[in-house]
């Protein structure tokens, strides 16, 4: 794993990105002039307080929302200009999402939730293998309601990683979990980043978590404040909550 800009290519590059929402008669600018690069194989953490625009930023990277202006370059192509179906294709082939509230389909079992993901991409992991990766080999036929929050989040991670995505985007993945479970989930994510060389973007409002990252991007009021390379990465167990 490297943290040198010259040695590796950016996986995704945001250029002069802005996002404005129209809330009734009021225009709310959520992102302002964002220039940012996410590097291949790195674990990048976007850190910022609530309402700073970090989730919106992640949505732009993941192609589930479009910027008002600016570019989102992936393999030199601006995905912001993609049609709906091309954007869907981008997500389908390249992106895995992990959400704060897991967003599992309650009427599908763990295995089936992973299958939702594997059935639509070309080179997926076996759903059972993905679940074993996250330590849920014995919970495959359980429904979300029969699992703890941590287990549900691990199913969500399995669902994301089973696609073998180039980008894995995690939106406050531990936001709804207790400390102990959070450690398990974060360990799992770093392990996947290391072993599978998946580019991982994680957003959080908790600074201690950021210390696990290769790169820490601080954001506030819709602007990137700083981008730091973290030379002293810590393990999940070392986080002081």
């Amino acid at each position: 794993m490297t943290n040198s800009k010259s040695a590796i290519k950016p996986e995704i590059k945001l250029v002069d990105l802005t996002k404005t929402y129209q809330m009734g008669e009021v225009k709310v600018q959520v992102l302002r002039d964002i220039d940012l690069e996410i590097y291949k194989g790195e674990l990048s953490v976007i850190l910022g307080p609530s309402g700073s625009g970090k989730s919106t930023l992640l949505n732009m990277i993941g192609g589930i929302d479009r910027p008002t202006s600016g570019k989102v370059l992936f393999d030199e192509n601006d995905i912001a200009t993609y049609s709906d179906s091309k954007l869907t294709e981008y997500r389908r082939s390249n992106v895995g999402f992990v959400f704060q509230f897991y967003n599992l389909v309650p009427t599908l079992t763990a295995r089936e939730n992973v299958q939702v993901s594997t059935e639509i991409c070309d080179n997926p992991m076996d759903p059972d293998e993905a679940l074993q990766h996250v330590g849920l080999g014995d919970r495959m036929d359980h429904f979300p309601a029969q699992m703890s929050g941590g287990q549900q989040q691990r199913v969500a991670i399995a669902r994301a990683l089973a696609k073998n995505p180039r980008l894995m985007l995690c939106d406050e993945p531990t936001g709804a979990l207790d400390t102990e479970t959070s450690v398990i989930v974060l360990n799992l994510l770093t392990k996947l980043n290391k072993e599978l060389n998946t580019t991982l973007v994680l957003i959080t409002h908790a600074p201690p978590i950021a210390r696990m990252a290769h790169r820490i991007i601080s954001i506030d009021s819709g602007k990137v404040e700083t981008t730091q390379i973290n030379k002293k990465r810590i393990k999940a167990e070392e986080i002081v909550w």
Binding site: I64, S85, R92, I120, K163
Partner: peptide
């Protein structure tokens, strides 16, 4: 709604 959003995020088309 959330499930639909998630399915879309996963790349399932409209």
């Amino acid at each position: 709604r959330t499930i639909v959003g998630t399915l879309k995020a996963l790349g399932i088309n409209n």
